[in-house]
């Protein structure tokens, strides 16, 4: 692993992806509002995407497959954000708050 060609090694991309996953999980545990948890979830999506592209660039015999997987992943992430934000807005209308601790009552 030479320093001059650091960007031609899969290791550094995988370590960055692991860091993004760890920060995303940390944010999911520490955030107290729903939007903060949503942002942490986006970090986890980004980590998965970076892993896909790094693997398809360096290891896979089909470099286009990983990029297509990441395109699909971006579509899923966009759909997830749309649904989650509409749920957050509906929750805010009912509770006047999106702090996750206050959303502890359930009613059918």
């Amino acid at each position: 692993m030479t320093l001059a060609h650091l960007y031609e090694q899969p290791d550094v991309y995988l370590v960055v992806a692991a860091f993004l996953l760890a920060t995303g999980i940390f944010g999911l545990m520490r955030r107290r509002t729903l939007i903060g948890m949503l942002i942490s979830g986006e970090l986890i999506f980004a980590s998965a995407g970076l892993n896909f592209v790094a693997m398809s660039r360096f290891v896979s015999p089909d470099p286009a497959a990983g990029q297509i997987a990441v395109l699909f992943l971006m579509g899923i992430a966009a759909a997830e954000v749309a649904i989650a934000l509409s749920i957050i807005i509906a929750v805010y209308r009912n509770y006047r708050s999106i702090v996750s601790k206050e959303l502890s009552e359930m009613k059918g």
Binding site: A78, V81, L85, I89, Y92
Partner: peptide, 17 residues
């Protein structure tokens, strides 16, 4: 798209810690 949508959500709810 994603960040702008989240900012819209921030404007509609008051999500500060």
């Amino acid at each position: 798209a994603v960040c702008v949508t989240i900012i819209f959500g921030v404007m509609l709810a008051e999500p500060d810690e």
